[in-house]
């Protein structure tokens, strides 16, 4: 049982040199789902979504620190967050995307589910040539399973 029947088309794709501003609007238009980022050769090299956007709202130091770093001491107004987001709006999305290894369409559904269990809730799916086929998500799997009943 491969994951192919459960794959849905990506609502949009990003290129490495797309700006964060463009990425933000595309992510928003995709109901804040993570989008695949493609290299110039068309290969999936990362994901960019709400998690990456939320990360960009943080001060740089907090982004670099480990999990035990707290920001409770910071007293900042929403303008500060907007300023921070504006300061990276022109950056290439490749600079802020999450690294991502796509799965192949013939990957077993169980293996894809195992990856989901370990946090890969959005997985890009590629064909033999490494071209993007679509996305596999918990929602796409569950929706298809329910429809199959």
């Amino acid at each position: 049982m491969t994951c192919a029947p459960y794959v849905v088309p990506a609502s949009a794709v990003l290129r490495c040199d797309d700006s964060v501003a463009k990425a933000m609007s595309l992510v928003a238009a995709s109901c804040f789902a993570p989008l695949p980022v493609l290299s110039a050769e068309g290969r999936v090299v990362g994901l960019f979504g709400p998690r990456e956007l939320a990360r960009l709202l943080l001060p740089t130091g907090a982004r670099l620190a480990g999990g035990n770093f707290t920001l409770g001491f910071l007293s900042e107004q929403p303008e500060g967050l907007r300023e921070r987001l504006a300061s990276v709006a022109g950056d290439d999305v490749a600079r802020h995307m999450a690294p991502h290894t796509p799965i192949r369409a013939e990957t077993s559904l169980h293996e894809a589910l195992r990856r989901m269990h370990h946090g890969a809730t959005y997985q890009s799916v590629v064909d033999d040539q490494g071209r993007l086929v679509g996305m596999l998500t918990a929602a796409s799997v569950l929706t298809t399973l329910v429809e199959e009943r």
């Binding site: 130091g61 770093f69 920001l71």
Partner: peptide, 14 residues
């Protein structure tokens, strides 16, 4: 430095 540098970066950013 792992403990102090992030705080320094937050402060200098502010």
């Amino acid at each position: 430095v792992l403990l102090v540098v992030p705080v320094a970066l937050v402060i200098t950013e502010q």
